[in-house]
Amino acid sequence: MEGHPHHHQLHHHHHYHHQHLQQQYQYHHQQQKQPTRSVSDDGDRFPQWSLQETKEFLMIRAELDRSFLETKRNKLLWEVISTRMREMGYNRSAEQCKCKWKNIFTRYKGCETMEEEAMRQQFPFYNELQSIFLARTQSKMLSEAEGGETGLKRKAVQLSSDEEEDIKEEKELEKSSVRKKKQRKSSGAAGSTSGNNTYSIKEILEDFMKQQTEMEMQWREEFEARENERRSKEMEWREKMEALENERLLMDRRWYEREEQRRIREEARAEKRDALVTALLNKVRREDHHM
């Protein structure tokens, strides 16, 4: 048996399914290092992407992710990202940014079936990509909740036009490799390989659906927690209002009682004054009568 095949030998018939994702990654990696669709000198003139530069790039891409999903032609958006990168001191063209995203997106998809520890060693930007796709899932759930369940028959996770284009290219590569394989092997073997690839895509979609279900459960738990907190605060507010009302009624009652006592004392003083005046008048009359 020969050693590990070179990545250009896509038609090699040993360990095909295991090498398929690796070949896809190498294909996109070549596209970034040798961007034939962009200005050919860019790949040679600029250094490789640093860890910090890539993180800054992913932050900008995450901010514009919703625009990428809503727009079919994303050329202008990549120009915006290129401009933002230049403002941060990174001289990257729009095509370089697009190829970088293509490479990262492919690597993210390849990490879906890996264990967490191995995945984080192979792909240090997994968390950034996962947060982008979880935000998409949450946004899709909210829009479906507002507009009914019409979106259930759509894709599990919404993809931008660039990402759909990448998947289409991968499928075309897959068909091309199957055609080459048919020249050497029987159609049954090729069909079996194609079935394995279809199953791999199915696993990825099922994993996205699982993430969507977990996000929905988390959203419901957070909603119930917020609702319970709102009810608790409302009850607390009502109790405070009732306490204030009771205090106001008590103060009114005390004021009324004080006013009543003041009126009684005033009436008592008036009666005493009247009695004193009457006694004085009677005394004067008696004195006048004796005189």
Rank of each mutant, 00 (worst) to 15 (best):
K100S: 00
E95V: 05
V157D: 03
A189G: 01
I81A: 07
A279T: 09
T198P: 01
A94N: 03
M119W: 05
H11C: 07
K155C: 08
H13T: 08
R258H: 06
R258T: 08
M88A: 08
E271N: 04
K185H: 10
R262N: 13
E229R: 13
Y126D: 00
Y126T: 04
E172Y: 02
M215P: 02
S139A: 12
E87L: 11
E95H: 06
C111S: 06
G147I: 09
F208E: 02
R136Y: 03
K33F: 05
L21Q: 06
S200V: 07
Q22H: 08
D65Q: 15
K233C: 02
K98A: 09
L173K: 00
F105Q: 00
P124S: 00
H6N: 08
Q122E: 10
A156T: 15
E247I: 04
E53A: 15
R230Q: 01
Q48V: 14
I264K: 11
R184S: 07
H12F: 05
R253Y: 09
R258L: 05
Q212I: 03
K171V: 09
E174I: 07
E128N: 02
S67R: 05
I201W: 14
R285A: 15
F133K: 04
Q19M: 10
A268P: 04
L21A: 15
I264C: 05
G3P: 14
H18N: 00
K283H: 10
E174L: 06
L173S: 01
Q48K: 10
E214S: 11
E174C: 02
K33H: 06
L159D: 00
A243M: 13
V157T: 08
M291S: 07
E229A: 14
L244V: 05
E245V: 11
E260T: 15
I201A: 11
D274E: 15
R61L: 14
R226E: 12
S143V: 04
E163R: 00
I81L: 13
E70N: 04
A118P: 06
K210L: 11
E174M: 02
L51W: 08
D288F: 15
N103S: 14
Y90I: 05
F208K: 05
D41L: 12
P35H: 04
E165P: 00
G43Y: 06
M217L: 15
E115D: 12
E95Q: 09
K202N: 06
R184N: 05
E229I: 03
Y25L: 09
Q24V: 12
L77I: 03
A225R: 15
T36R: 11
H18W: 06
L281H: 13
L281W: 02
K272I: 12
L276P: 00
R107G: 07
R92T: 09
Q211G: 07
T54Y: 03
H28A: 14
L77N: 03
V39D: 06
R179M: 04
N246G: 11
R45F: 10
L281N: 14
R269I: 13
C99S: 14
G43L: 05
E146Y: 01
S176T: 14
L69T: 02
G147T: 12
F133M: 09
A118L: 09
E116C: 05
F105H: 02
H12Y: 01
